[in-house]
Design a protein around this nucleic acid. Sequence first.
DNA 1: CAGATAAAGTGTTCTGTTGACACTTATGGT
DNA 2: ACCATAAGTGTCAACAGAACACTTTATCTG
Lengths: 248, 248
Amino acid sequence: MKELYKESVNREGFAIPYYEIPYEKFFQFGLSVDCVVFGYHENKLKVLLIKRGAKPYLGKWALPGDLVYPNENIESAANRVLRDLTEIDSLFLEQTKTYGQVDRHPAGRVITTGFYAIIDIAKHDPHAAAWADGIYWVDADNIPQLAFDHNQILTDALRILREQVGKQPVGFELLPSKFTLGELQALYEGLLGVSFDKANFRKRMLSMDVLIDCDEYQKNVPHRPGKLYSFDLKRYSELKSKGSNFEI
Amino acid sequence: MKELYKESVNREGFAIPYYEIPYEKFFQFGLSVDCVVFGYHENKLKVLLIKRGAKPYLGKWALPGDLVYPNENIESAANRVLRDLTEIDSLFLEQTKTYGQVDRHPAGRVITTGFYAIIDIAKHDPHAAAWADGIYWVDADNIPQLAFDHNQILTDALRILREQVGKQPVGFELLPSKFTLGELQALYEGLLGVSFDKANFRKRMLSMDVLIDCDEYQKNVPHRPGKLYSFDLKRYSELKSKGSNFEI
DNA sequence: CAGATAAAGTGTTCTGTTGACACTTATGGT
DNA sequence: ACCATAAGTGTCAACAGAACACTTTATCTG
């Protein structure tokens, strides 16, 4: 084996695989990114889907995604896809998993890296990018059949979102900068699909010491107005670096 | 943009990117896997490193890894690398992250997907595969400088291991099939770098109801022999599917 | 204006978990 | 016989979490 290996370097001395497959074949992979963009509206979690405008899976539902350019970093590509759709750079854009089944793409060997992002639906009106025929918000608990292995990618992203949402202040992205504790509670209930006791939820949130009391109240609501808070990112970072862990 | 796109399909009608870069350039990526293999010995967490036998980074420390074959799934490639080194199929081989900085490999655009595995050092004596000049167990808290971005990959894997170890019964892989609660505690302390109260640790472990009492005891130890337990994978799966969560 | 409605916001009790710690037990070594 | 070492147990106080009842403050409706 060792001997075999020593013959298996190319002319510049770089290691190449030692089976009888031409060197070039190892450099014919395509790489794409697929973004699972979560939004939140009326107590419901939504996902941004497109209608494909080209083969394969022409006209089918799919996650927004694109091939990575030869001189482009993966994260940059994911940001580009998101920016093409929403014209914003999301604060949360995290890698989920990478999918590379040999037969996942009919046009060749295409690896895809999944990302998930969270945006505030009210703030951004997404529009179809060049590579899509249409773009729609779809309920996260009612996803149609998607192209490629996108159902798997979406399912994984949803699981990862739910795992993270309790441990990182992910959710605050989905709220206006000033919000009531009731809105915050509804958000978490929507994301996690559970319900909390109001009194206990407030106590926990306020005791974590990452909310700034804005000393303002809601207006024009047909009930007692709630006090407005904002998220103290600086304080959160301080606590995080000191090792305290944020847990819902 | 839309118009531009509609011209941007190749002769079979597949979507191709719409910038002025030849189609072929999008399919010149290489894909590799890098495995962070954890082992545990004498209360210390170890990582399996190789000495590279070819350029680039000839003679430097690196993670074991290899290019993925054109007709090989990513997970299969990771399993192959591990099997080449240890002659076993690890029960735990999980994806961590994918790394694709444009300039991470001097020989071209190579994407790499990280994996982490856990094996029992006592059971498997690793040997250098064809693509390595040597293979060594190195203390996880004293890692030398590694080739490529392997230090980053290792750091991420270690963080992910520590996150998972409290939530999945990962650690049992590292112990003999029958073990004492003291050994289990030492393992978790080694992995997580903390120490637990003995009484409380036992209570928690036994209350989780995933340990089988073997009704046997240690032999030839210079102190009171501990009772032996084994991990009840079946019971664990049952509990998991019922939604109860295993937490250290 | 009176009452209904809706959600904000508070206080109290009960219970189970967690951490700290002291103690007893069993084995081999000297 | 005694020591060292680690196994294994019991208790108690403090805290965190769930459950629930209650008060407060706004708009809406007649």
